[in-house]
């Protein structure tokens, strides 16, 4: 949280005049608790909204009964306390942008559904004829965040002829089981088409 910089001490009152100059470090020291509370509140809101959607049409305050509101708040605060550190660790806060949600929906009903339909027809062809040429290939789409890698890995698993086997955490290499190997050293475009560009728009 605190970056090593020209200022040696972490305590702001030991710093004297330098505290005014090292604005970055000062900001990170003072803003860390605020940021943590904001993360907790965002997680709580997310969990509580899911609970409210699940228990709609149960009573008279709006759509919900009083017991559901109180119980849902208690359960949501417990779940948020348990999980808010995991959720926002590596660039997860980028997913809070509503524009990304719109792009995600467009991605889901556009190229993704098309590729899934093609994938199923492909599997149908291979089930009937039994013609396969499998292998495990490696490529690097150049994604950095966890959310982007997860999204691309799941997309690859559900699209024509490919199944994600392993993802290297440091370099971001994808190891993919390909049911019909056309090239031994493929580019990302050969394996998964336009998906990396969409994933960069949606999640990075």
């Amino acid at each position: 949280m605190v970056r090593p910089g020209p200022c040696q001490s972490n305590l702001p009152w030991n710093r004297g005049l330098w505290g005014l100059i090292c604005l970055d470090e000062l900001k990170s020291v003072y803003w860390a608790p605020v940021r943590r509370v904001a993360e907790l509140a965002a997680t709580f809101a997310l969990v509580f909204v899911v609970y409210l959607i699940l228990t709609a049409f149960s009573g008279e305050i709006g759509l919900w009964s009083r017991e559901e509101l109180i119980g849902g708040a208690v359960v949501s605060i417990l779940v948020a306390l348990a999980s808010f550190r995991l959720l926002w660790e590596r660039g997860g806060w980028r997913l809070l942008n509503p524009l990304r949600w719109v792009m995600f929906l467009v991605y889901l009903v556009g190229p993704f559904l098309l590729a899934m339909a093609k994938a199923n027809l492909d599997v149908a062809y291979r089930v009937i004829t039994g013609r396969i040429n499998p292998g495990i290939v490696r490529f690097n789409p150049g994604l950095k965040t966890d959310a982007g890698r997860t999204l691309l890995a799941n997309s690859i698993t559900l699209t024509p002829g490919t199944l994600t086997l392993d993802v290297d955490d440091e370099t971001g290499d994808f190891y993919v089981h390909w049911i019909n190997v056309r090239q031994v050293d493929p580019k990302p475009e050969d394996v998964c088409g336009v998906f990396p560009h969409w994933v960069k728009v949606v999640a990075e």
């Binding site: 292998g135 799941n154 698993t157 199944l163 190997v181």
Partner: peptide, 29 residues
């Protein structure tokens, strides 16, 4: 959310357990 993740976990576990792919052309992993 869960279906591709589960299948990915199973595939990785099978590869680490030493099950070879059938007639593989290439095996980078």
């Amino acid at each position: 959310l869960t279906n591709p993740t589960g299948s990915h976990a199973l595939a990785r576990a099978a590869h680490r357990a030493g099950i070879k792919p059938f007639r593989a052309v290439v095996d980078r992993l």
